[in-house]
Amino acid sequence: MSLQKILNKGKRFISDPHYRLRSMIKMGVYNSLSDEAFLRKIFPKYMGYPLNLDDPRTFSEKMQWMKLYDRKPIYTTMVDKYEAKNYLADRIDSKYIIPNLGVWDSFDEIDFEALPNQFVLKCTHDSGGIVICKDKSKFDKEGARRIINMSLQRNFYLIAREWPYKNVKRRILAEPYIDELGSADLLDYKMYSFHGEPKLTVVCSERFSKGGTRMNYYDVDWNYINLSILHYEPSNRTFEKPPHYEEMISLCKKLTKDYPFLRVDFYDVNHRLYVGELTLYPGAGFIKIEPMEFDYKMGEWLHLEGIHRS
């Protein structure tokens, strides 16, 4: 790392409290805390108000409550990028699932000769750490090794105490490279479902732009909701319903009917609908919603009564 990059990181560490907090978490400053103590300490730093676990009202508070007390073993399967596909295949048509090319325990086990010219590598337990190969003749194998091995070493659970990640087996997954999924214009549709009923959809756009990802919110009838989440400002674009919107609704209901909350991510590309992933705690429950009244509204949609405390 160059001296200038080190200086820039140092300046950001001093000036940006959220960056400083994330850096301290990654450095392991809070590793010794219990899950509850960690969440009570970190939540106010992200959200600006104390965490009430005795009588949670906001969606963000209820996400933390569920991290601590709604601990179904199936959740570990659902966040495992490899096992989640088997889980989905038992519930929906395989045409909606991006297929696997292989799964390995270590980078050295990967048979690159057997992989197609274009592919994607990712780790099963982590978020980020993705390697995209568009032309195997130009593939930087050693660069890929560094990225994947760094990801394999990362304990994703400790970052926000999303406990389902704690026991995910750390493996490397290869998938086909789907050109449309790497497009700068790709739209990612994230559907929030409460007790089996989709309530709103987030349209993520401009994911690879210099300005960063934009997020626009729509209710189930596709009416625009004026929200701002963290640093994800809404796009100035107006988004129409995706071509397979009704199909998304149907799939979402099927996949979420047995759970108090679940987010289902979709891609609607090239006349095809794909399920990207299942998410239990969007933004780890640290998504500062403005206006805050909507955080309370989303909290009203999520009923904790009757959830068996694991």
Rank of each mutant, 00 (worst) to 15 (best):
Y232N: 09
N236G: 15
Y259I: 05
Y232E: 15
L251C: 02
L262F: 07
H244K: 08
V220G: 00
E233I: 08
E247D: 11
N216L: 10
K253C: 08
Y245A: 09
S235Q: 10
E240C: 12
Y245C: 08
Y217I: 07
E247H: 06
S250R: 08
P242V: 14
K241E: 06
L230T: 04
L227F: 05
F261S: 06
Y232G: 00
R237M: 09
P242W: 08
C252L: 02
L255Y: 10
K254W: 11
E240A: 12
R263N: 00
M215C: 06
N236P: 01
L255F: 14
D258K: 13
L227E: 02
K254E: 09
K254I: 06
C252S: 10
D219M: 09
D219S: 04
S228A: 09
D258P: 07
S228G: 05
C252W: 01
Y224M: 03
K254D: 13
F239E: 04
K241Y: 05
Y232H: 14
L255A: 07
I249H: 03
M248D: 06
T238M: 10
T256K: 01
P243C: 00
I249A: 05
R237S: 10
I249W: 01
Y259K: 13
D258M: 04
I225H: 14
N236F: 11
N216K: 13
M215K: 15
K241W: 00
K253I: 06
